[in-house]
Amino acid sequence: NIFRVLGDFSHLASIFILLHKIQQLKSCSGISFKSQVLYMLVYITRYLDLPWTSSPYNFIFKVLFISSELYIIYLMARAYKPTNDPNLDTFHVEFLLGFAGLLALLFPYKYTILEVFWAFSIWLESVAILPQLFMLQRTGEAEAMTAHYIAALGMYRALYIPNWIYRYFSEPTHKVDTIAVTAGILQTILYSDFFWIYYTKVMRGEKFKLP
């Protein structure tokens, strides 16, 4: 349905906004490398089922997400490494990995490798933006492109929420994916303060600065 498609394209747009910013400004300042690595982990553990994905739509998006994320990490770790400031990117990701790992082991749908890794990836994605938001907090401001990147990334999962509501009412056989829904709501909540600042500042064409 439209919400889901818009969400997936918003996700794709966020990746291309980020790529554009890094290549255009030849710098990855203001971007958390830790968050990008977490997203790489999210895609790898989420798309282990890539080889037998039945829908071409999903297959293409999975390949796009994995390949573009690999490229972003290459750019940040090799090409523009000098513009990477590790002592601004100090969020303790082990807490996030522990959080996702614990929930994946406690409440997977089934105790199979695929399901446990999938649950891990869903929970990790819900908190993977934290190092990025934390870095934003520390620098106090961000380039417009970085703000657009975070906004598009936040919108992707936010749009999945109406998608789930729509499916609940329109597909009688649809069973609610409680893990994805819970984590998706948590993820969207984590963006809420950012969205507020983004909406009030950037929509007025002002620079993105924290109050």
Binding site: R4, D8, H11, R46, D49, W52, T53, S54, S55, N58, F61, K62, F65, K110, E115, W118, Y160, N163, K175, D177, A180
Partner: peptide
């Protein structure tokens, strides 16, 4: 019955 297990969302 298609295995519902297959994740149909990204």
């Amino acid at each position: 019955r298609r295995e519902k297990d297959e994740k149909d969302e990204l």
